[in-house]
Design a protein around this nucleic acid. Structure first.
Lengths: 208, 208
DNA sequence: AGCTTTAAGTTGTCATTGACAACATCGCGC
DNA sequence: GCGCGATGTTGTCAATGACAACTTAAAGCT
C-alpha cells in the first residue's frame, strides 16, 4: 500500500503502448490507465501535462526503440553496407507491425509536435541513422550517381508504404505472408545482389 | 426557421471533412458539428448511429472521390496506358495532400470496418480501378514478366509512402516542392519513358 | 535529529462529449 | 385529411480531460 507508485511515468508509457496496440489509439484514456495501475485519476497529470504530452513521450521512446531495433538487425547481417541497408529496411517494416503503438505515435504525432524538443531530437537521431547507413552504402559503390537525400527519400517511402499496406484492413494484402512480402519488396528497391548499380532510375544507361 | 434541415447528412459529412482537414480528426465532435449546422446535439444520431459510422461514411465518400480524381487525371493525359498509370500515381499523392480528411479516413478506418458493406464495396471499386490500369499498362508491353498483383502492390506502396512522408511533420521533406518530388518519385517507379522494361527488378538482365 | 521544501499522489469539481430515451413535428402515401 | 415514418428536439447519464486545493512521502539542509 505504498503511497508512491515507484515509477509511474514508465508504467504509464508501457501500459499506454499496450492499450494502443490492443484496442487502438482512440480507446486510450488517461483515467483508465490510472485505474489499471491502481492509482488515482489525477496521478498521470504529475508526469504528463495532458494526454498529447503522453503520446509525444511515447513517440520519443518509440524513436529510440526504433533506432535500436534497426541497428540490431543491421548488425546481425554483418558488415557489408548494402546488405546492412537492406536489413534495416526490412527491420523498419517489421518494427511497424511488431510495435504498432510506437509506430503510430511516431508517424502520426499531434500538431504540437514542434514544441517538443525531446521528440524532435529523437526524430532527428532516427533520420541520421538512416542517412548514415545510406551514405555508407553509397561509399561502397551503390547508387553513386544519386544524391543521398534522394536515396533515403526513396527508401523510406517504400518501407513506409509497405508498412501502411500491411496494416490496412481494407487492403487485399493482409493475409499474405508478411515476411515474404517484406523480403521481396525491399530487395526490389535495394537489390543487394546487384551492388554495381549506380542510379535509381531503371533505364539501362544508368542516369539518363 | 425550418424544422427540418434539408440535407443534414450531406452537410454533416462536408463539415466533418472540413473540420478534420483544419484541426485534425481528434478534434472532431458530433456536438460541435451539430452546433455548426444550427441543429440540436442529437440530430446527427438520425443519420449516423455513432461517430465511427460517420467516419466510415466519410471514408466511403472519400473512396468514390478518390476514384473520380484519379480517373480524371488519367483522362487528362491521353490514352497511352503507361502514361495514364503514371498520372494516376501522381494524382494519388496529390489527392492525399488535397483532401487529407478523406485520405485519413480511407487509410485509417476503425476496427468495425469489416461490418460496413458500403465501405468495403467502395474500397473494392477503388482497388479495381488501379488493378485495371496496371493490367492495361502491362497489356501495352510494360513489366510483362511481373504478376499484376506485384505491380500494383509495388506502385501503391510507393505512392502511399510518399504521401506519408509529405504529410509527416517530423520528416525533413515537407518544405520541398511537393509537386516536383511527386513527379520524380513516381517516374522513378513507373518510368513512362522506358516502356520496354519488363521486370520490376533493376538488374540489367531483366527478370534475373 | 529535526525542519523545510518539493516531488508525487489524492479528492473534488467542471465543462465537454457520445450515447440513449422519450417526445414533437414535418411531410408523404393512402 | 389522416396516419405513420422519417427527422429533429429536449433531457439525461456516465466517461473523460483538465484543473484546483489538499496530503503525504522523501530528500536535503543545518
Amino acid at each position: 500500500m505504498t503511497y508512491h507508485h515507484g515509477n509511474l511515468r514508465k508504467s504509464l508509457l508501457d501500459r499506454a503502448a499496450h492499450v494502443i496496440a490492443e484496442q487502438g489509439i482512440e480507446s486510450l484514456s488517461l483515467r483508465a490507465l490510472a485505474r489499471d495501475l491502481g492509482v488515482s485519476h489525477a496521478a498521470p497529470a504529475r508526469h504528463f501535462a495532458d494526454k498529447a504530452e503522453l503520446l509525444r513521450a511515447l513517440a520519443t521512446e518509440g524513436n529510440d526503440r526504433f533506432i535500436a531495433y534497426i541497428l540490431e538487425a543491421a548488425d546481425a547481417t554483418g558488415s557489408d553496407p548494402l546488405v546492412r541497408y537492406a536489413a534495416m529496411g526490412k527491420a523498419f517494416i517489421r518494427f511497424s507491425l511488431l510495435y504498432p503503438a510506437y509506430y503510430r505515435t511516431i508517424t502520426h504525432p499531434d500538431v504540437a509536435t514542434h514544441a517538443d524538443a525531446d521528440l524532435k531530437a529523437s526524430a532527428e537521431r532516427r533520420n541520421l541513422v538512416v542517412l548514415d547507413a545510406a551514405r555508407a552504402a553509397q561509399a561502397a559503390g551503390w547508387l553513386t550517381n544519386e544524391k543521398t537525400e534522394d536515396v533515403v527519400l526513396f527508401s523510406i517511402a517504400t518501407v513506409r508504404g509497405v508498412s501502411a499496406i500491411l496494416s490496412d484492413p481494407l487492403t487485399p494484402y493482409r493475409d499474405e505472408d508478411a515476411d515474404a512480402l517484406i523480403e521481396r519488396m525491399v530487395d526490389l528497391i535495394i537489390d543487394p545482389k546487384n551492388p554495381q548499380r549506380n542510379s535509381l532510375s531503371k533505364r539501362k544507361g544508368a542516369a539518363q
